[in-house]
Design a protein around this nucleic acid. Structure first.
Length: 495
RNA sequence: GUCCCCAUCGUCCAGCGGUCAGGACGCGGCCCUUUCAAGGCCGAGACCCGGGUUCGAUUCCCGGUGGGGACGCCA
């Protein structure tokens, strides 16, 4: 039998990295074993679910490269793929369960239930449903319904027995039914509840492996009971440990970025994020780490997945992102970087030529920064030069004035500098001043960049002059040439 | 409170009865270098505790401790 897995997000916000990892592990299993990957939208909570969230989740999954075979957009033989469009299927099973006495109507009000829960908690008791409405006969229920009362439908959990299921990552897991309250399977307004809808859908969609977060492990016995009640065979379960923040608390906003969209906005590459996520709780073995997920899939094995929670380490993700930025085709990085250059004000129009210019700057930045977002900052010296700042910095350099005057003279009336003409100019300054090494180059750097550190001058100087020559034509912020910078600074130092 | 899950360097993974306990990130040092990064090399750094089982436990079993999850008409 061929494997069918599903990723079933609830469209109530952005795709969280923890969920992205769940989506990835499902994908790895499906792709590695030639199975089918189903995307199902769990939107039974109509108050919180939105179509915007649904499409942003789909977009995030696509960006990560986790493609699916069946889903709300892709179609498939087991649709519809939104729970909100499957009401008929649930109703049918509900009737069956009601008729068989496996489910009953519950007339308790939310206030009542909440009060009971608080009382139980206060008394140190497990806050599970008391089962009060189990005693309401179907006949009485019918009368009350006819009288206009509304009721939810609960599943009747058998008393005092164990429920055992196999979990591929954890082994055998057993719960006593005595700790499980009767779950609501249909709300009083007729919408199905989670524990019911998942089971029905996983059965109807012929899902063979349910891979989800560990937070669902205690729902599993309830679901197994429902599988039994409808005469279906439960799938293979795999509960993935959670992703935590550095303080061991669940990854949340205060730890920084938590959604896939945020990582994308901050300039991470999808192949880096997805590679990093795959390593959170799993390893392809052989001490290998940098690997495309497509290469990982054939080696993926659920039974090798880690049992313990993993701390999300942004520093390691950054290292990985640096690696993939170096591997990426420069034109792609340039395109991804363009929005950040616009935001910084360095690019004002931004067509093809601006993109080419940005690409030409990449050797100064890629390898030196963690994220695409940081590229403009790394090359800021090209765009944000100020004569006053440069002069102020240079005043503390003993030979600063001598060097820069010689440099200004060497480059005056020479046109834009390229690498060779810059070296020639530097050689000329060396000759005139008798200085070399740091004493020679540092003042030049400070004068031309208004900073005492930054990219190699061999790269920066030509970049500045190329930019200065073309700026207006290709939609860049105005850039002062190196000759201009040198002469402005020497004038300030003289004055 | 009850139930469930988990436990190797700071972090992520290897290990699956006998290993100098391995790799990666991070950290420290050195090298490279006209600066900062990057890169190369070297280094420090872990089997939660207590009982068993065994000739021998990081590895198997039990208990403790610690961490996490669940206990909704949310998923």
């Amino acid at each position: 039998m061929s494997i069918r897995v599903r990723f079933a997000p609830s469209p109530t916000g952005h795709l969280h990295v923890g969920n992205a990892r769940t989506a990835l592990f499902n994908w790895l299993l499906a792709r590695g074993k030639g199975g089918t990957y189903v995307l199902r939208i769990e939107d039974t909570d109509t108050e919180r679910s939105t179509r915007e969230s649904e499409s942003s989740i789909l977009e995030d999954l696509r960006w990560l490269g986790l493609d699916w075979d069946e889903g709300p957009d892709a179609g498939g033989a087991f649709g519809p793929y939104r729970q909100s469009e499957r009401s008929g299927l649930y109703r049918q099973v509900t009737e069956q369960l009601l008729a068989g006495g496996r489910a009953y109507r519950c007339f308790c009000t939310p206030d009542q239930l909440e009060a009971e829960r608080q009382a139980a908690l206060a008394a140190g008791q497990p806050p599970k449903y008391s089962g009060r409405c189990r005693a309401v006969s179907p006949a009485d229920a019918a009368v009350r319904m006819a009288g206009g009362e509304s009721a939810a439908i609960r599943f009747r959990v058998p008393e005092s027995r164990n429920v055992t299921f196999q979990d591929v990552v954890r082994g055998e897991v057993t719960f006593s039914t005595d700790v499980i309250g009767d779950p609501v399977i249909v709300r009083s307004d007729g919408r199905p509840a989670y524990n019911f809808a998942v089971v029905i859908d996983d059965v109807r969609m012929e899902i063979t492996h349910v891979i989800r977060g560990e937070d669902h492990i205690s729902n599993t016995p309830r679901q197994v009971l429902i599988y039994e009640a409808i005469g279906a065979v439960p799938p293979v379960f795999a509960h993935l440990s959670l992703v935590l923040g550095p303080d061991h608390a669940p990854l949340s906003k205060r730890h920084g970025a938590t959604s896939v969209a945020e990582f994308r906005d901050r300039g991470y590459l999808p192949e880096a994020l997805v590679n990093y996520l795959a390593l959170l709780g799993w390893s392809p073995g052989e001490n290998e780490e940098l690997m495309a997920v497509a290469q990982m899939a054939p080696r993926f094995d659920l039974s090798a997945v880690s049992h313990s929670a993993a701390v999300f380490d942004t520093a390691k993700l950054a290292w990985m992102n640096r690696h993939y930025m170096k591997e990426a085709v420069p034109a792609r990085i340039a395109r991804e970087a363009l929005p950040y250059f616009r935001r910084a004000g360095y690019v004002v129009a931004g067509g093809e030529s601006a993109l080419e210019y940005i690409e030409s700057l990449l050797p100064m930045a890629v390898g030196s920064v963690d994220r695409i977002e940081e590229i403009p900052e790394r090359v800021a010296q090209i765009f944000d030069w100020e004569a006053e700042r440069a002069a102020a910095l240079l005043r503390s350099e003993g030979d600063g004035r001598r060097v820069i005057e010689a440099f200004a003279a060497a480059v005056a009336d020479r046109g834009p500098l390229d690498r060779d003409s810059f070296r020639l100019a530097a050689a000329r300054v060396k000759e005139v001043t008798g200085l070399k090494g740091r004493a020679l180059f540092h003042p030049i750097r400070v004068a031309l960049t208004a900073a005492d550190s930054g990219p190699e001058l061999d790269l920066a100087v030509p970049a500045i002059d190329r930019g200065a020559a073309m700026a207006a034509g290709i939609g860049l912020k105005r850039i002062a040439s190196c000759a201009q910078r040198a002469s402005d600074v020497s004038r300030l130092l003289r004055g």
